[in-house]
């Protein structure tokens, strides 16, 4: 298996301007401006302080970000992470304890809503709750007693 290149920007480094590249990057320092790693993973380490618009394939936030975040695959805000800005990605996970203020846009690429059952359709209250995954498509109704 080929090892993936990973570049680290240390705690004492301060960058003002545009940062772009084609390697995975971990930032523990400060960056102001714009970060663009369209095909790679960007990790904002626990010491990282970012004031920038960020574009990457996967973005992991463990430090502080002020600015909008766009990922083509996913954004992962860890419990030590803090984001003030708008997030756009097909998948977003936010850990308990993380700080987040802004909006999250999870529109699927080229797709539309999953399409839940219409509000005036057949009542759905008789479906059992147990053994149902917390995510995934809404299953079809099954005749069963109320789980309440």
């Amino acid at each position: 298996m080929q090892a993936r290149d990973n570049v680290n920007i240390g705690k004492s480094v301060v960058i003002k301007g545009e940062l772009s590249g084609s390697e995975d990057l971990t930032i523990e320092g400060q960056v102001e401006g714009k970060i663009e790693l369209r095909q790679n993973v960007l990790t904002i380490g626990t010491n990282g302080r970012i004031k920038a618009a960020i574009f990457a394939k996967i973005i992991v936030v463990q430090g502080e970000v002020h600015g909008d975040i766009t990922a083509s695959e996913r954004v992962d805000i860890r419990d030590s992470g803090s984001v003030d800005g708008d997030v756009s990605a097909p998948r977003v996970s936010i850990a308990d304890g993380a700080h987040f203020r802004g909006s999250i846009d999870m529109q699927r690429q080229g797709g539309t809503s999953a399409g839940a059952k219409p509000i005036d359709g057949k009542p759905a209250e008789s479906r059992p709750v147990a053994a149902r995954p917390a995510s995934g498509p809404i299953p079809a109704p099954v005749p069963a007693a109320s789980a309440r």
Binding site: A98, F100, S103, I104, M106, S113, A114, A116
Partner: peptide, 17 residues
């Protein structure tokens, strides 16, 4: 986080918190 993931996956929506 669970709610964001749930609504996002079910509805492909935009959520402002």
């Amino acid at each position: 986080g669970d709610n964001i993931a749930f609504f996002g996956e079910q509805l492909a929506c935009k959520i402002r918190v």
